[in-house]
Amino acid sequence: MPNLSIKNVPADVIVGLRERASANHRSLQGELLALVTQVVTNPGSVSGAETVQRARKGYKSIEQIAQEHRQLKKRPYRKGPHSTELIRQDRDAR
């Protein structure tokens, strides 16, 4: 299979591509191949600048979402009934 090489890529583009690859659980090579394949098979679906912008902002990894949730909910929920009480009530209702 032939190989491609891209020279003189700006550092910020590389950072964006690495972030996008990480968010998609791919290697940098895998992400580049996926992008090129998508553009070739579905022309007009991906604009280069838009893709890099999306990789930088607006999309979060599950780790980022979990961290934000932990910061918002520092204390556990204590006002409701214990799970054992709910289970007993359910069993008694049968």
Rank of each mutant, 00 (worst) to 15 (best):
P2V: 14
L4D: 15
S5C: 15
V9A: 09
A11C: 03
V15N: 06
G16W: 00
G16I: 01
L17M: 14
L17F: 04
L17E: 03
R18S: 05
E19W: 03
A21W: 04
A21C: 09
S22F: 09
H25V: 08
R26M: 13
R26I: 04
L28D: 10
G30F: 06
G30Y: 06
G30E: 10
L33T: 12
L33N: 15
V36N: 08
T37Q: 15
T37R: 14
V39W: 03
V39N: 01
V40N: 04
T41K: 12
T41R: 14
T41P: 01
N42D: 11
G44L: 09
S45F: 06
S45Y: 06
S47I: 10
G48S: 11
G48F: 12
R54S: 13
R54V: 08
R54T: 07
A55L: 04
A55Y: 00
G58K: 10
K60W: 05
I62L: 12
I62H: 08
I62R: 06
E63D: 13
Q64W: 02
I65M: 06
A66D: 03
Q67A: 10
Q71H: 00
Q71W: 00
L72T: 02
K73M: 02
K74A: 01
K74R: 10
P76T: 02
P76F: 02
P76A: 01
Y77D: 00
R78V: 01
K79I: 00
P81L: 09
H82Q: 06
H82G: 01
E85P: 02
L86G: 06
I87T: 09
D90M: 12
D92K: 09
A93C: 02
A93I: 03
R94E: 07
R94A: 10
R94G: 07
